[in-house]
Nucleic acid binder design. Structure first.
Lengths: 190, 190
DNA sequence: CCTCCCGAAATGAACGTTCATTCTTTTACC
DNA sequence: GGTAAAAGAATGAACGTTCATTTCGGGAGG
């Protein structure tokens, strides 16, 4: 994960505590305790709490994209590629609930809004998912809606069911996940 | 709204500041200043900050349900009733961005999770939307999925596009709203 | 009509706590 | 024994909340 043991322990502790208690419930003293280091030690590895949190986020973002790209059916039809991404997304999230909760916390916070804004206005940022949707739009395979709306239709509900599963409002199994991802496809397909 | 001028001013100030800056960015001193009262005065009307925030939430919740129920086509087919609710939801949210942002903040916080949990496990809580979905499920009009999943598919994307609109990532007009609500219908309909 | 007084309402400085961050001291290794 | 790493007490800022004090409005007494 990271270069040294202690650095890794601090990242892990931050991830866990923020996921469980939110940013408010994650004072540096507690992070230090959980990581098995002294409070001051954190500042040998991270400039500030903000820097620490952003680093945790980028670490998770990388892991997540790596998961999506594994076994990605490159040349397959749009629908199949979408089903792959959706399925991996949900399975990854419910398999790593702490990471999911952290990302959710991050997303709904000043950090997340800033990150979104940057992503959105930095037009030459082309990830796989954007590529896929652009292609599908061009080929008339999906509804002619703005990209952010398609993203919302496609992935909003998937994140919702992940949260519901983690909070034990529903119990997802492979079959239910597939049916939900297909429902999302129904939402965007023309 | 409330019984007295000052009480109302405090609620309004809390709503505005929390919507704009989040819970962290809304210290009582700032709320007091914006409401035009002294810090101590707030505690004549509210027991604590938590009590204040919960009161703001319940106030908004009421207003929101009132909006949905206005012109609700009681006897109409399921699809039509759903389109009504979806359309009103989106139009209400983008017409009251501060209220929307507050509710979003609330939802993604310990307050919101507690509220959700209570709603979910209090089974005899029957609102219009739950009624509608239960009826549709029974009649086989929508996909046979758990209620929370249907909720996510139906309303998750709508809240997403409201946020995107308020953050100026997209520009919603009546026609685009309708198409998005219909896309959500496609997601849940059998 | 003026004055005094009373209780409720409002004030804002002060308090205690919590937090991120800093800094001096101690440890551990070469 | 010297140097980099780690420790944890110290610091100061920010916060929610409290409370001694002031302000306000109006009713009673002269």
């Amino acid at each position: 994960m990271e270069k040294t043991d202690k650095r890794c322990a601090i990242v892990r502790a931050t991830l866990d505590i923020v996921a469980e208690q939110g940013f408010h419930g994650a004072p540096m003293a507690l992070v230090a305790e959980r990581a098995g280091v002294a409070a001051g030690t954190i500042y040998r590895y991270f400039e500030s709490k903000d820097a620490l949190i952003n680093e945790v986020f980028h670490y998770l973002e990388e892991r997540f994209f790596a998961a999506v790209m594994e076994h990605y059916p490159e040349g397959a039809p749009v629908r199949e590629r979408f089903l792959h991404i959706g399925g991996v997304l949900v399975r990854y999230c419910i398999g790593a609930p702490l990471e999911f909760r952290f990302l959710e916390q991050f997303h709904n916070s000043p950090y997340g809004v800033a990150h979104c804004r940057e992503k959105f206005f930095n037009k030459d940022n082309r990830d796989v998912i954007t590529e896929l949707f652009s292609e599908a739009l061009g080929a008339g395979i999906v509804k002619d809606l703005p990209l952010p709306a398609l993203f919302g239709l496609a992935f909003g509900p998937l994140l919702d069911i992940c949260r519901d599963h983690i909070l034990h409002f529903i119990e997802l199994d492979d079959e239910l996940v597939s049916r939900c991802v297909e429902a999302c496809w129904d939402a965007i397909r023309r």
